[in-house]
Simulated scan of single mutants.
Amino acid sequence: MSVHFDERSGTVRCKTPWGEWYQTMEEVFIEVQVPLGTSAKEIKCSLGSKDIALSVKGEDILKGKLYDSTVSDEGTWTLEDKKQVCIVLRKSNREAGNCWPSLLKGQYNADPLLKDEMQKKLTLERFQREHPGFDFSGADISGNYAGGGPDFSNLGK
């Protein structure tokens, strides 16, 4: 059984008033806290390739243009334990450099340090995929990613 990248390295989560969101090279995950006891029929969720709309009990929770495009027919949502809506969007552009700095255009931005951490995780994920036999669990990417790229000189030592 292979260990999924997220389980091995953790995720960098961006907190929001309604919950949090995080990403991998391929997907964006959105976790929305809803009132305990919420039923699926009380949830309306529309997942387009460029926009999203989520309302619970008639109240808009999340609505707007996504930061980048997704594969609309591969987006899913589930209600977990009647208290959390989990949305998974598949990125159209799945390059490691495609780090979303915000969930929606102009909303739910990751602060600069968090965005840098997100970019480092995606870069590390790419290297993990390119070198599947190498153990990256203790890897640390030094430096500011935006400043010209990561330094992997500390790996394998």
Score class of each variant (00 low, 15 high):
residue 1 M to K: 06
residue 2 S to A: 14
residue 3 V to N: 05
residue 3 V to A: 11
residue 4 H to P: 14
residue 5 F to T: 15
residue 6 D to V: 15
residue 6 D to H: 12
residue 7 E to C: 13
residue 7 E to Y: 15
residue 8 R to A: 13
residue 9 S to Y: 15
residue 13 R to I: 15
residue 15 K to L: 15
residue 20 E to Q: 15
residue 20 E to Y: 15
residue 23 Q to H: 09
residue 23 Q to N: 06
residue 25 M to L: 13
residue 30 I to L: 14
residue 31 E to D: 11
residue 31 E to Y: 13
residue 31 E to R: 15
residue 33 Q to M: 14
residue 33 Q to G: 12
residue 33 Q to W: 03
residue 37 G to D: 04
residue 37 G to T: 05
residue 40 A to S: 13
residue 43 I to W: 07
residue 44 K to W: 08
residue 46 S to M: 10
residue 46 S to G: 12
residue 47 L to W: 07
residue 48 G to Y: 04
residue 48 G to P: 01
residue 48 G to H: 09
residue 49 S to E: 11
residue 50 K to T: 15
residue 50 K to Y: 04
residue 51 D to Y: 10
residue 52 I to D: 12
residue 53 A to Y: 11
residue 53 A to V: 07
residue 54 L to H: 12
residue 55 S to W: 00
residue 56 V to R: 06
residue 57 K to W: 01
residue 57 K to N: 08
residue 58 G to T: 12
residue 59 E to I: 12
residue 60 D to K: 13
residue 64 G to R: 08
residue 65 K to G: 04
residue 67 Y to I: 05
residue 67 Y to M: 09
residue 71 V to Q: 11
residue 73 D to Y: 10
residue 74 E to V: 00
residue 74 E to G: 03
residue 74 E to Y: 04
residue 75 G to R: 04
residue 78 T to K: 15
residue 79 L to Q: 07
residue 79 L to N: 01
residue 81 D to T: 12
residue 81 D to W: 09
residue 82 K to A: 15
residue 85 V to R: 06
residue 86 C to V: 14
residue 88 V to D: 05
residue 89 L to P: 10
residue 91 K to Y: 01
residue 93 N to P: 02
residue 93 N to Y: 03
residue 94 R to W: 04
residue 95 E to R: 13
residue 97 G to A: 05
residue 98 N to R: 03
residue 99 C to F: 01
residue 101 P to A: 09
residue 102 S to I: 02
residue 103 L to C: 10
residue 106 G to Q: 03
residue 107 Q to W: 02
residue 107 Q to F: 09
residue 111 D to Y: 01
residue 111 D to H: 09
residue 112 P to I: 08
residue 113 L to F: 07
residue 113 L to C: 08
residue 114 L to M: 08
residue 116 D to R: 02
residue 120 K to M: 09
residue 120 K to E: 05
residue 122 L to Q: 04
residue 122 L to N: 00
residue 122 L to A: 03
residue 122 L to W: 00
residue 123 T to G: 02
residue 123 T to E: 14
residue 123 T to I: 11
residue 123 T to W: 00
residue 126 R to K: 06
residue 127 F to D: 07
residue 129 R to L: 11
residue 130 E to C: 09
residue 131 H to N: 08
residue 132 P to A: 00
residue 132 P to K: 05
residue 133 G to A: 02
residue 138 G to N: 10
residue 139 A to D: 05
residue 139 A to L: 01
residue 140 D to M: 10
residue 140 D to K: 09
residue 143 G to Q: 05
residue 146 A to P: 00
residue 146 A to V: 07
residue 147 G to Q: 08
residue 147 G to L: 14
residue 148 G to N: 03
residue 149 G to D: 02
residue 149 G to R: 02
residue 151 D to I: 07
residue 152 F to R: 06
residue 154 N to R: 01
residue 155 L to D: 13
residue 155 L to E: 09
residue 155 L to C: 05
residue 156 G to W: 00
residue 157 K to V: 14
